[in-house]
């Protein structure tokens, strides 16, 4: 059974169409990543599934319950972490969690106990009794996540949980998501990074202008968008053309120059990258930067829609 399901969701705000009929679904205990640029409709879709917003057309269920007709029961099943860490700045971390526990009808001592549990699990013990306005971005995000877990939800909606976090903090959030899934929770995660979707999701829905433009497992999607990209920045900018011709020869594709002194080309696997490294070394080109990465959202969209400005 699907833990949540959305069918043909349409939402308009005045003349803007935020959602133009999208379908989303995730099996129980899986992670669905909704990948798309700002304004694609990710947040709108999450808000409809989380009962905060009503769709103009289409339907959505969580745990088999309609999000409009059984909103109150759906709210007992879900946890929500918004795009901007939604903790109360004037309250301490502990007070934030206790309040939510009280609102979930936990009796006083259980509410305190649950808050203490979560504070420890999210590494916030030392800061528990400080006001949240003194928290760093990463701490707020952790508290926000903790807040959405107070009621032990079956389904968690994470709306861009790592936007604005530095890479180390991002890894922390990823670890939390993986642990949740291990415990059987179903996660809907919105993100602007293919890398994040690839790291966490069982399935990815790519959305743009309120429509799903691609759906599949990370492996399927990567096959469509051309796998990985090798990037070379020669230490000596004069040797860029040489590096470019090496990349062209080894990959059989036309390299691009996305920035000053940098050349990139899609490659088919790690082996191809090793060949590039060897070839560069053989011609005596030292690289200031040499990396292999997944396509950026921009590149994904270029491949899927043929429009470079889609993700701008």
């Amino acid at each position: 059974m699907n833990a949540f399901e959305a069918e043909g969701l349409v939402k308009r705000f005045g003349k803007t169409t935020a959602l133009a009929g999208i379908d989303l679904a995730a099996r129980q205990g899986s992670v669905l990543a909704v990948l798309g640029p700002n304004g694609a409709g990710k947040t709108t879709a999450v808000r409809i599934l989380a009962t905060l917003l009503r769709a103009d057309a289409g339907s959505a269920t969580v745990g088999g319950l309609d999000v409009v007709r059984h909103a109150a029961r759906v709210r007992r099943l879900i946890g929500l972490t918004g795009q901007y860490a939604s903790v109360d700045e004037d309250l301490t971390g502990r007070e934030n969690l206790v309040l939510i526990a009280r609102l979930l009808d936990l009796p006083g001592n259980q509410a305190k106990q649950r808050a203490a549990e979560l504070l420890t699990e999210f590494g916030l013990d030392a800061a528990a009794d400080r006001r949240c306005k003194t928290y760093s971005g990463g701490m707020r995000r952790r508290l926000d996540l903790a807040a959405s877990l107070v009621g032990r939800p079956d389904v968690i909606f994470l709306d861009e949980p790592t936007t604005g976090l530095d890479p180390a903090k991002r890894e922390d959030v990823w670890t939390i998501v993986r642990d949740l899934v291990e415990d059987g929770v179903t996660v809907l995660l919105t993100t602007q990074y293919l890398e994040e979707a690839d790291a966490l999701a069982d399935d990815i829905s790519v959305i743009d202008h309120g429509k799903v433009i691609a759906h599949g497992s990370p492996a399927q999607l990567k096959r469509i968008v051309g796998g990985q990209t090798a990037l070379v920045r020669p230490a000596d900018p004069e040797r860029l053309p040489e590096a470019e011709s090496i990349l062209a020869r080894l990959s059989g594709r036309r390299p691009e120059r996305p920035g000053r002194g940098v050349v990139t080309v899609p490659v088919d696997g790690d082996a191809a990258f090793a060949e590039i490294v060897a070839a560069l070394a053989a011609s005596g080109i030292t690289a200031a930067e040499l990396s292999l990465h997944l396509p950026s959202l921009d590149e994904v969209f270029f491949t899927l829609t043929g429009q470079r400005e889609a993700a701008a």
Partner: peptide
Amino acid sequence: GVFDRFRAL
């Protein structure tokens, strides 16, 4: 955002 959280409860 904190009112959003209340409304999702």
